[in-house]
Simulated assay, not measured.
Amino acid sequence: MPSILQTVKRDNEGYLLNPDDWSETLMEQLATEQALVLSAEQRSIVLFIREYYEANATVPEARKLLKYMREQWGEDKGTRKYLYQLFPHGYAQQACKMAGMRKPLKLMLDV
């Protein structure tokens, strides 16, 4: 049985071409592909991106994500430094990719 990653269309960097193809199973496979085992906090961020996208048809800018992180986990974890601890290759490059987003045209997402 082929993995979901083999059946969805992606660009040359691995971003989904159609965000509607996303599922939590696919999120896990994308994380594995990036050598990550998702923690509860990483999963929460990816699901926040999905919820924001579904409500607004756009990816949240990093400042909105940082506000969410402060509200969820406090001031010391609502920082760019902590976001990079969770996603060392960057918000757009890892979190948005695992949330099934297309590659952002502008990198206002990265902090």
Rank of each mutant, 00 (worst) to 15 (best):
F48L: 05
A62I: 08
Q34I: 00
Q42M: 07
L38H: 12
I45Y: 13
L36V: 04
T32G: 11
P88D: 01
R43S: 07
E61F: 15
E41Y: 14
E24M: 05
L65Q: 09
R10G: 01
T32M: 11
V59H: 12
P60Q: 04
V46L: 06
Q85M: 04
L47P: 06
Y91L: 02
Q6E: 14
P88W: 04
P19G: 04
P19M: 01
Y84K: 07
V8G: 09
Q85G: 05
L36T: 04
L86V: 02
E71M: 06
E28R: 10
L30M: 13
T32Y: 15
W73I: 00
H89V: 00
H89C: 02
R70A: 09
K77V: 00
I49T: 04
L26W: 14
N18M: 00
L86D: 05
T25C: 03
W22I: 04
Q34E: 14
D76A: 02
E54K: 14
T58N: 13
E54C: 07
E71R: 13
W73M: 03
K81V: 06
R63C: 08
N12V: 09
E54Q: 15
G74P: 10
R63E: 12
L30S: 03
Y52S: 07
G78N: 08
A40N: 08
R80N: 01
Q42R: 14
E24K: 07
E28I: 03
E61C: 07
K81G: 08
F48C: 04
R70Y: 12
E51A: 08
H89T: 04
S39G: 10
Q42G: 04
V8M: 07
T32V: 11
P60T: 00
P88H: 02
L17V: 00
T79S: 12
Y91G: 03
A35K: 10
N18G: 00
F48P: 11
G14P: 09
K67Y: 14
E61Y: 15
A31R: 12
Q42K: 11
Q6L: 06
P60C: 03
K64T: 07
L26D: 14
P60H: 01
D20E: 13
G90Q: 08
R70Q: 13
R70H: 12
Q42F: 11
G78E: 09
V8F: 12
S39E: 11
D76V: 02
P88T: 02
Q29S: 04
T25V: 13
E54P: 12
R80K: 08
R80I: 03
P88I: 05
A57F: 15
E28W: 06
D21A: 11
F87E: 00
A40W: 06
R43N: 08
Q42D: 07
